[in-house]
């Protein structure tokens, strides 16, 4: 069952810029420009793109806050813009930079409010709270005022608050921002567990690509309001025409060496860096270098996912 469906969804904003003392110029900005994709129930999708690519505009349309300028949009079978409040009961939203917890009250009070606002049946509430407390290790924190919690603890509290009403979809906006490595790991582990155990569909925007690598079977890259890549993480390397790097330590310093199928990108004393397409095997290049030059040591470096995506953005900007 497709839980999220977008068909040629567009959203334009009118920006008024002051051009003179009295004159103003109206300009249309297309934040989302013909977006089409579907997300099946139970998927965990990473939704990434540079700032201003249209990520938050998409999330705002999916939650019903913003009305699309055009196209068709369905979440859990309903039109979010028309049935925002009804939809609110079926989705969970976590903003990494904005807590929805009550600052001066014990964590438990925020959960109690959720129980009432979302009209969660008592038994379901007890079960879900118990499970969240267990998985997120919140046991000793329930009676602590939120302002006394660390950032990581607060994020765990926010996650629990967003899941108490059994949402079918969970939108996460930068859920690990500002967290230390341990807290990040804990949040990711919890999300994996929720996705696996409850089949909650997760849509995650992030700038931390480790989140994606560890959580998402599918990545959507968006830029200038369009999907520029949609598929597995592995496919990103090919789509991004990424390159692997062969680092060779020669017996002595020399000018850039010549090897077929690779090009030298950097020389530093006897060490040289050779880039070659990620889909090619390293073996023939290593053989070619070894045959021509005295070789002391070598290593192959995989492309960093950040670089792949950065290259992808750059291509879109040029193309």
């Amino acid at each position: 069952m497709a839980l999220i469906e977008l068909e040629d969804v567009r959203r334009t904003f009118t920006v008024r810029a002051r051009t003179g003392r009295f004159s103003r110029e109206k300009r249309e900005v297309r934040a989302v420009d013909g977006l089409s994709f579907t997300v099946e129930a139970g998927e965990c999708v990473g939704y990434i793109g540079p700032n201003g690519a249209g990520k938050s505009t998409t999330i705002k349309m999916l939650t019903g806050i913003l009305v699309p300028s055009g196209g068709r949009l369905r979440v859990a079978g309903v039109d979010p813009a028309r049935e925002r409040v009804a939809l609110a009961r079926r989705i969970g939203v976590v903003f990494g930079q904005r807590t929805t917890l009550w600052w001066d009250l014990p964590l438990r009070d925020s959960f109690e409010l959720a129980r009432r606002i979302y009209r969660i049946p008592d038994r379901r509430y007890r079960e879900n709270l118990g499970r969240c407390v267990e998985l997120l290790d919140l046991d000793g924190l329930l009676d602590t005022p939120v302002r006394q919690l660390s950032l990581g603890q607060r994020m765990r509290g926010d996650l629990a608050a967003a899941l108490l009403h059994d949402p079918q979809v969970l939108y996460l906006d930068e859920p690990t921002i500002g967290l230390d490595v341990v807290s990040k790991g804990r949040v990711r582990e919890f999300l994996r567990e929720v996705n696996r155990e409850r089949g909650t569909t997760v849509l995650l925007t992030t700038h931390d690509l480790t989140d994606i690598e560890q959580l998402c079977g599918r990545v959507m890259v968006i830029d200038h309001g369009r999907v520029v890549y949609d598929g597995g993480l592995d496919g990103l390397h090919e789509a991004g025409e990424s390159e692997r790097t062969l680092v060779v330590d020669l017996a002595e310093s020399r000018p850039a060496i010549e090897v077929p199928g690779a090009r030298v990108v950097k020389v530093e004393g006897p060490r040289q860096w050779l880039a070659f397409p990620a889909r090619e095997s390293a073996a023939p290049i290593v053989a070619a270098v070894a045959a021509r030059y005295p070789l002391v040591d070598l290593s192959v470096r995989e492309p960093a996912i950040e670089d792949v995506i950065a290259r992808m953005y750059a291509e879109v900007a040029i193309g």
Partner: peptide, 13 residues
């Protein structure tokens, strides 16, 4: 500051 949005995602008016 964008916090009206956090109110709009709750089922309460």
């Amino acid at each position: 500051n964008g916090t009206l949005d956090t109110m709009l995602i709750r089922p309460a008016p």
